[in-house]
Design a protein around this nucleic acid. Structure first.
Length: 212
DNA sequence: TTGGTGATGTTT
DNA sequence: AACATCACCAAA
């Protein structure tokens, strides 16, 4: 099953040149930024090969009052990018196997971040497929934080990068996701603060790590 | 289609 | 010992 043809892809060349979201985008409330990231584009270019994907699902991790956050107990060798200025990339190894990617928010010193959980491929579909040979269908290519990193080729070398490079950036796709189109749920795979409804996703999208 | 489980590194 | 996960296998 491949529904990519149902969506008319934007012109590829447009996004290699596109301006990254400004730093100020990451300076509001983290929960608001998380929702605002839905429908934005993740652009990753490696060896001249561009990949663009629409962000469909995220989770917010706050500073205080969030025991689920990696930064809850302060700075460590692993979580330092969370303490950097908003717009910094935080990559970590989950369960010793899978990478997960976040973007930090707030000013330097305030460790909040947003985890990218799922995305819809727009450009570079063949490359993504080659990196995700186990995916049973295209919907599973980037459906989960570890899978998303696999498909996009994200690993620890991206840790600490900012999302405003020519080859690594978050861009506006020229669309608006209405508040009524955004779904909310508790965060997935955590045990602490499991009651907080800080997972956000595009309700109508089939490109999610799970439904609802 | 679902549910249980092993792999594996960082932090507590 | 727990963990912001994934893929595999068995059972139904």
């Amino acid at each position: 099953m491949n529904s990519l043809e149902q969506n008319s892809p934007p012109a590829p060349e447009r996004y290699a040149e596109a301006q990254a979201l400004p730093r100020t985008f990451y300076h509001g409330k983290t929960l608001s930024i998380a929702k605002a990231l839905l429908g934005k584009g993740l652009y990753v270019e490696q060896a001249g090969q561009p990949i663009l994907a629409e962000i469909t699902e995220v989770e917010a991790y706050l500073a205080e009052k969030d025991p689920a956050s990696h930064a809850f107990r302060g700075l460590t060798k692993r979580n330092w990018p969370m303490f950097e200025a908003g717009g910094t990339c935080y990559v970590y190894l989950s369960y010793g196997l899978n990478f997960c990617m976040n973007v930090s928010t707030q000013e330097a010193g305030l460790a909040e971040a947003i985890l990218f959980r799922a995305a819809r491929p727009i450009l570079g579909l063949d490359l993504i497929r080659s990196r995700r040979p186990r995916a049973r269908n295209d919907y599973q290519l980037l459906s989960g934080p570890g899978r998303l990193c696999q498909g996009l080729g994200i690993d620890l070398k991206h840790n600490g990068w900012t999302f405003d490079r020519g080859d690594f950036k978050i861009v506006d796709l020229g669309q608006r996701v209405a508040p009524s189109a955004i779904g909310t749920s508790t965060r997935i795979g955590i045990t602490k603060a499991s009651d907080k409804p800080w997972r956000f996703f595009i309700k109508s999208s089939p490109w999610l790590s799970r439904k609802g």
